[in-house]
Design a protein around this nucleic acid. Structure first.
Length: 440
RNA sequence: CGGAGCGUGGCGCAGCCUGGUAGCGCACUUGUCUGGGGGACAAGGGGUCGUGGGUUCAAAUCCCGCCGCUCCGACCA
């Protein structure tokens, strides 16, 4: 066993990789992303709506998380980490301790102090803010974290898409006035469009209810998928629109009609019927402006330019990181398995040695492996002594974007095969050419 | 929480109705062959039948309680 082949901390030889695959789908998995995550050895259920992430799933989760982090940083937000376990008293201050209901997991510590496992963090972040910030000159601020949340859903389902414990990116903006808050809101709005796009997803921003978070301005970001949980209505223009086009500003996008079913009133819909589309959506993000809903009861105020104290204007912004992993699979799969977009794939390339026992094959594959590794390519090397069919099925199931197939047949002609998981297209190249292609 | 269903080896299931030696496929172990799409043969290992009680000479099977999981509905990233 070698451990030096894993700069990322993961073994890259499949024979050493912890990848418990399933040929059949467990009965409890109802939708394709859940089935595939179980079959591909990404997750295992611990209890209802609570999962362990195994190496392959964890790798994808981390990549999704990293994209979110990079986009938040690029949007001027600063990362923090708040406690998962929170004291109840700040929730009593905000008035949500009673309002939140049984979704909140409550318990007592050994001193019989009321505690809870955080379902969201408005109270905590507002508490931090009120104790640290005094002046309008410290505004605006936008803080985020990527943190496990717990919401004791009545009925968890769909694997990680609707778990009780889930990884969420949540951030919180603080501004002096409404204009500032609106700027923060719009800034997050466009950051979200960029974030989802990087994962290969088109998320349609929809007018939404603000629910338990409360507030007056709110958008949900929905990915269209037949297995989505909510019914959504939207302008056919979204099917053509490039939401990231430089000449398209946030106000313009927000004027296109799109709404979830709670918000959509058929009689009041401004769209002509021929432009109204409806389908099902997976909610992957939700942004809220809620003004002083928390700053007022918790007393988060700054001194303004005129010397008067004002409660800060706040917004909060969530992205379901663990849910996105499932959502991406819903969008990218076929009957053989997952088809990862390159930006979130657990590995860039899989080397499939069809004949592990053949010295020539092992030599060429080992050489490819070393060269790709040196070039910084993330490689999974299938060195198992399995039949070709098993190897192909494994790779198609776990969905690595590029497969390099090394077999005795090709090597006679001095070539290996480069296959795209997405298109299924295959190309015969010399090993050197493959390295150039993949390392380029 | 209301309604429905399911718990039998790691996974998928049969057996339960009509009580009497726990079974099949996949996976796993060993060996031989095989080798470009989940290969073949042979020999093996692994199950307190979710759990507690009850009925019975005898319970996976019948009865009751509990626990867990899933599905349909109302809530949410």
């Amino acid at each position: 066993m070698r451990f030096d082949d894993a700069p990322t901390g993961r073994p890259m030889r499949l024979s050493a990789y912890f990848l418990p695959l399933l040929k059949e789908s467990p009965a409890e998995a109802q939708i394709v992303s859940h089935q595939l995550m179980l079959r591909a050895g990404m997750i295992r259920q611990s209890s209802a709506g609570i999962y362990s992430w195994l190496p392959l799933g964890h790798a994808v989760l981390r990549r999704v998380e990293q994209i979110v982090r990079e986009e938040m940083n690029a949007a001027g937000c600063q990362e923090i980490l708040m406690p998962a376990v929170q004291p109840a008293d700040i929730w009593q201050e905000s008035g949500r301790y009673e309002a939140y209901g049984r979704e909140m997991l409550r318990f007592e510590d050994r001193h019989e102090r009321a505690m809870l496992f955080g379902p969201t963090h408005e109270e905590v972040v507002t508490d931090i803010f009120r104790r640290c910030i005094r002046s309008y000159r410290d505004l605006p601020k936008n803080l985020y974290q990527i943190q496990w949340k717990f919401r004791d859903e009545i009925r968890p389902r769909f694997g990680v898409m609707r778990g009780r414990e889930f990884l969420m990116k949540d951030n919180y903006s603080f501004d002096l006035d409404f204009e500032g808050a609106k700027r923060s809101y719009d800034n997050m709005f466009s950051a979200y469009l960029r974030t989802f796009k990087r994962m290969g997803l088109t998320a349609i921003p929809m007018r939404a209810e603000s629910g338990a978070i409360g507030g007056s301005m709110s958008h949900e970001f929905q990915i269209l998928a037949s297995t989505g949980e909510s019914e959504v209505f939207y302008d056919a223009a979204f099917e053509e629109l490039d939401l990231l086009a430089p000449d398209l500003d946030v106000d313009t996008i927000q004027r296109y009609y799109a709404a979830t079913d709670e918000q959509h009133l058929p009689d009041a819909c401004p769209l002509p019927p021929e432009r109204l589309r409806h389908g099902r959506g997976i909610e992957v993000g939700h942004i809220f402006y809620f003004g002083t809903k928390y700053s007022k009861p918790l007393g988060a105020a700054v001194t303004g330019p005129d010397g008067e104290d004002v409660f800060v204007e706040m917004g909060s912004y969530g992205i379901g990181v663990s849910r996105l992993v499932g959502a991406i699979i819903e969008a990218y799969h076929d009957d053989k398995g997952i088809i990862w977009p390159e930006s979130v794939a657990p590995f860039d390339v899989a080397l499939v040695n069809l004949r592990a026992s053949d010295t020539g094959c092992a030599e060429v594959t080992g050489d490819l492996y070393a060269k790709l590794k040196t070039a910084g390519v993330d490689v999974l090397y299938d060195d198992r002594d399995e039949s070709p069919g098993v190897k192909f099925a494994t790779m198609d199931l776990i969905g690595i974007p590029w497969q390099v197939v090394i077999g005795p047949r090709g090597l006679k002609a001095g070539v290996v095969e480069l296959k795209s998981r997405a298109s299924g297209e295959t190309e015969e190249l010399s090993p050197e050419a493959v390295v150039d292609r993949l390392a380029g």
